[in-house]
Design a protein around this nucleic acid. Structure first.
Lengths: 196, 196
DNA sequence: GAAGTTACATACCCTCAGTATGAAACATGG
DNA sequence: CCATGTTTCATACTGAGGGTATGTAACTTC
């Protein structure tokens, strides 16, 4: 390994630590994953982990954030491709449900997130990513006159809760391929409720 | 302490352990609560706890179940008092939201439950209590022709997810008293979506 | 009331989060 | 280039807490 700048060294190990954390937290859950295991998977020792992160929750938080970034990017990209705002909203919901088929996403974002980081912190992060995409989509639909008056953020949150539940339900299904349309239809039915 | 039968001794300490677990898990969260602390609060030692429960998750599960029983009883009682099935449904949703104002309920049932017990186990328990009440209410409404055809269990689950989210939102509100009607209205709006 | 079972208490182990402490790898002024 | 910070780690240690082994007292059964 040739001569590298400090920022390069730091970024490299930090990134590898977060990747390892994402992998192990996602596979085995928060409690069953030790800092030593994450550090070893990243090719460093615990000292490096504690140098870059304040503690285990901070490391988990980084993995959570990355999971959110990836998902939000995916949602935004696919929703952007749709023609009208309503179709984008439907597309986004469907994509979120599909995303829940990833065990790592479920474990980190839905199962362990609230317990480890607390509800406020989790929603604050999501408010900058997946929940932001949903809310933006609903704002656009509202601007197009497709949504009734009311508390949009609160509505987005309720829909988000329903989607998380739907995602877990989908993941437990013996045949997710077959159940995805069913659940997507039920979710869209809830969206219909918000029409004027 | 006079002469007691074994069953009495066992029931007494078990009950006190669960009460202490409910109290401490609810107040400080699962990770920050030690078995020793629970045992001490129950007036026994760790040995007693491990004699009656397989481990920390089992003790948490008992607290979770008790929380569910109390809530389901409350929901059933209040919903029973309503006239028609639709009013009972609305009443149940509103009562669940109110229940979320209890910090212990939120911590145990919504935050830590899925992480500690896993999603399947949590929903299995809820399926016998709070979720059961909701599903029964929806079945009655469906029998009265108030709900459209479709997958009732899946719908109940989605509504349940929205309600949990609404409950957390309500709990974070600076003025829950004022926001309860707002959130209840939004939740009812989602219910409206299920009408034929 | 003796033998067996249940309900605990006590003492111990072991994993693991968190904390020094020290040694490299870089950076910066001369 | 070298001396002196500063950053990036590795190594060694501590403490808390989950879990276990074992002993003992309270009950039960015969």
């Amino acid at each position: 390994m040739g001569r590298r700048t400090q920022a390069e060294r730091s970024d490299a190990t930090t990134s590898q630590l977060v990747s390892a954390a994402q992998e192990l937290f996602g596979r085995n859950g928060y409690a069953a994953t030790s800092i030593d295991a994450i550090a070893a998977a990243a090719g460093v020792t615990k000292g490096a982990a504690y140098h870059h992160f304040e503690g285990k929750p901070a490391l988990f938080r980084a993995a959570f954030v990355r999971e959110q970034e990836e998902t939000a990017a995916m949602l935004g990209r696919l929703a952007m491709g749709e023609g009208d705002s309503w179709a984008a909203l439907r597309r986004g919901c469907r994509t979120f449900l599909e995303r829940c088929l990833d065990p790592g996403f479920r474990q980190i974002v839905i199962l362990d997130g609230p317990s480890v980081l607390g509800w406020e912190a989790v929603r604050e992060i999501e408010y900058g990513h997946t929940l932001r995409v949903l809310l933006d989509g609903m704002r656009m639909a509202a601007a197009d006159g497709l949504l009734a008056e009311g508390n949009l953020p609160a509505r987005a949150q309720l829909v988000f809760g329903a989607l998380c539940e739907g995602g877990m339900l989908l993941a437990r299904s013996p045949d997710p391929e077959a159940d995805l349309p069913v659940l997507a239809a039920e979710a869209e039915r809830l969206l219909e409720a918000l029409k004027p």
